[in-house]
Write a protein that binds this DNA or RNA. Sequence first.
DNA 1: AACCCTATTGCAATCGATTGCAAACTATCC
DNA 2: GGATAGTTTGCAATCGATTGCAATAGGGTT
Lengths: 347, 347
Amino acid sequence: MVKECAKVLTLADIARLAGVSESTASRALRDNPVINAATRQKVQQIAADHQFKVNATARSLRTQKSHTIAVIILFDAKTQQTLTDPFLLDILGVIADELTRQGYDMLLSTSKTTDKDWRSYYFDSKRADGLIVIGQGEHDERVLQLADAAVPFVVWGAADSDETYPVIGSDNRQGAKLAVEHLLKQGCKRVAFLGDIRHTEIEMRYLGYQDALSQAGLQLEPKLQLNTDFTAQDAYIKTQQVLFNELSSSAGSLDAIFAASDAIAMGAMKALLEYGVQIPQQLAIVGFDDIAMSAYCTPSLSTVKQDTQAGGKLLVSTLLQRIAGKTVPSAQLPVRLLCRQSSLRLL
Amino acid sequence: MVKECAKVLTLADIARLAGVSESTASRALRDNPVINAATRQKVQQIAADHQFKVNATARSLRTQKSHTIAVIILFDAKTQQTLTDPFLLDILGVIADELTRQGYDMLLSTSKTTDKDWRSYYFDSKRADGLIVIGQGEHDERVLQLADAAVPFVVWGAADSDETYPVIGSDNRQGAKLAVEHLLKQGCKRVAFLGDIRHTEIEMRYLGYQDALSQAGLQLEPKLQLNTDFTAQDAYIKTQQVLFNELSSSAGSLDAIFAASDAIAMGAMKALLEYGVQIPQQLAIVGFDDIAMSAYCTPSLSTVKQDTQAGGKLLVSTLLQRIAGKTVPSAQLPVRLLCRQSSLRLL
DNA sequence: AACCCTATTGCAATCGATTGCAAACTATCC
DNA sequence: GGATAGTTTGCAATCGATTGCAATAGGGTT
């Protein structure tokens, strides 16, 4: 059903129509002040009339800039689905908007698809001028490999110690500490931690969890930390398998959960509610991220809100500065604890 | 911190290193059988050793193919956020994987960013070989505009009557009918419909809702249809503002809701639960999509599951066939009703 | 030995836009 | 009038890979 239609015009066509050379046409369209104002207007008018669009490919080849950023979303190899966590969608949207605002296109890929070598695929091949990597996970080798090459990139995650590349992320440790302090303030004594500490971000949250416990003089129980995937499903299963036993053990009853993501929290909460546990009276729970659904589940989920708006913008601006050759430091964004029904006992 | 590193090699470099001409090198790398096997091997070996990657820009310019597909996500102009619905993430992930599998890159954009003219921006400028438009919404003008041009594209949505372009989507009408039939079978008499019927897909769901009602000999009450955004928040508010009044009206009590998306359903459910309504005993509710959270909210949400896996793959294969010049028909994917706690009264 | 055929390889043009440098033209001033 | 400065414009090279066509070499045949 595709209609045959006139061939797409090239710069040469526009130049001919305007009666000028290609160089003049090119400069006119790019608002080069060296071109006479009248000529410029005329060329632009003709280009607009014919809906002329510069061939992005040719321009990229000549200028050696693609004006495209590749966004790579890492995910857990175990999880079947590629994009699962709503949190990703959130930050992805912000990045997309911000890149467009800055005149860049966004090439999206999931790690499954490009196991090989990001540098050669995206950068050497000139598909992208820079990379944004979301999530560090256990895939650090590939990120480190990038760092060794002269590829401009930024990571969303947790700054480890002294990376040679900029990492943007929330203050995970502080956020976790706030969450657990809040749980303790609600009278909880035994708090489980749900999340895979092999991911750097989650490890930081675990540290914040520890901070709060030790500050309150509580003993750390390693068996209360479960490596769960970032899915409600896995949290649901692990909760049933492991935590039910802890609800009333010799060590006292489990009376709180701090989950490393809202999806995890919701899975755990589901299992507990089905089991007849009263939330928050018998067990209080706090998640992390503040995805849209958190406020609308029942009971609504207390959580540590990540500022995706600020995060996405900072990722983009950091990357663009790096592309411009500047050295930009890592940054941690402040987080905020949102207390909702799942953890508020004192009303 | 970017280390200075050797300039990226070009095909000419590889050719020189292998002692052959550029043409031979090019052909060797593309596995052209006309090249002597030994030569081919040698060139490929050298290229691999030096981690040579063909410059995608130059190749695109020469071959006039970008091997890139632009995915455009439409969204409601009223909603602030760009990417809100988890369902989008779902299908987006499938499309991303499938495109990669087929050797295509994916350029992602949200409609906010490219209000202007998709054809000239993506296609005429040679940024993409084709377009996938997700969601028709109220933005039909732009889609129609595409159809008039010779641009290969596919739409995820609902086939209207006789479009000149392929539309892939779920069997929305049938899905809605199944959902409402189920509600009626549970003994419900007055069913509200939450969703904005100005979107074609939702309109189809509304038709299915009507089908089920009239088949059961029930009167359609137009005031029970509310145009809600695709967010839990808007559904929450609208439910409070409008539906509370209907819980016990002269027309009988509202005892069921069919929501056009799971997010909407969850927002409505939250409002009702807060108001003290028993779900499903007093009011049963069914959503649409089957997003990951639906199974993990409380009560778990009955819903009409869309087959995103099949949908994403079909979108991609349809588009690629179109790019190859074939005419491909629209298609409707079967849906499945998942009965969970929010609607099951008879246990 | 002459000739033909096939298997390889290379030359050179091409994709479309950008840009350094030189040319052309106008204006100004002595 | 002519020289100089300033403003516009165009020529031609360039970005890197692909490909039609011609050229070459080697093998086989009569």
